[in-house]
Design a binder for these strands. Structure first.
Lengths: 123, 123
DNA sequence: ATAGCCAGTTACGTTACCGTAAGCGGGTCA
DNA sequence: TGACCCGCTTACGGTAACGTAACTGGCTAT
């Protein structure tokens, strides 16, 4: 590490930061899980997705989907069959997040699973 | 995608989720940036780190470092020279986050930079 | 003694995010 | 017609995260 080290441009000093920007997309509690489920289960309806995510409320799921749709990560397709169906799927942009979500998942797998937060130090 | 598809175990239905767990570490606004700076600039003092991160306040930096220290991601070393110095560095666990932070950074680089949020749709 | 750097802390306020509970409009099925 | 599924929305509340501003305390250099 010398003094004149050039940073890879993705850490500028002028406001924008690719890390923060990406984190604001994937850093919400449910966002990465939703994306992961969509990656591995193809298009899903609202209720199916809710069951898939396990723990999320309809309200939060709805909000998250709105957010992700606005950010062009998921697409909402109304399938006009008799019972009005809706299908949520990843856009290309959303699918491109696969490495990111995978990185999150694998790191958690490898470094976080043997969690002993309460058994660790205090008391 | 068949029906009996086995998920890689890192997306259980029973509460714990490696993705969410990791996101709770790296998903905060400043956490990944701090880690990134520490990855690329070696150990830094408080003020040096604050200047490096650019935009963070001393309070938030302090809080973030407390959090990251508690989670064994960064270490705080008091270098007891005459002017009391402190050095923040990554632990092994912290360094292992490199792929995750890199994934965030690179995705942002490749998919988010040409941002035209305001120029896009409305008005 | 005054000024300045380093490493924070405290007080205070705002916004974002998450969660519960309930309800609603439309359709299907019996 | 009533019971039930689907796809949400609304109302309400709490906590956590973030932000600003000011201030502290130890040490140093002048």
């Amino acid at each position: 590490m010398s003094d004149t080290e050039q940073l890879p441009a993705w850490c500028p000093g002028d406001g924008w930061c690719s890390i923060t920007a990406t984190a604001s997309l994937v850093g919400k509690k449910w966002h990465p899980v939703i994306i992961h489920r969509l990656l591995h289960h193809g298009p899903l309806g609202f209720n199916a997705l809710q069951e898939e995510v396990d723990g999320i409320s309809s309200k939060v799921l709805s909000e998250s989907l709105d957010d992700l749709e606005e950010k062009r990560v998921v697409s909402r397709t109304i399938v006009s069959e008799k019972p009005v169906r809706v299908e949520y799927a990843l856009t290309e942009l959303g699918e491109s997040l696969e490495p990111v979500v995978t990185a999150l998942a694998e790191w958690g797998e490898q470094h976080l699973e043997p969690v002993d937060e309460e058994a660790a130090s205090v008391v």
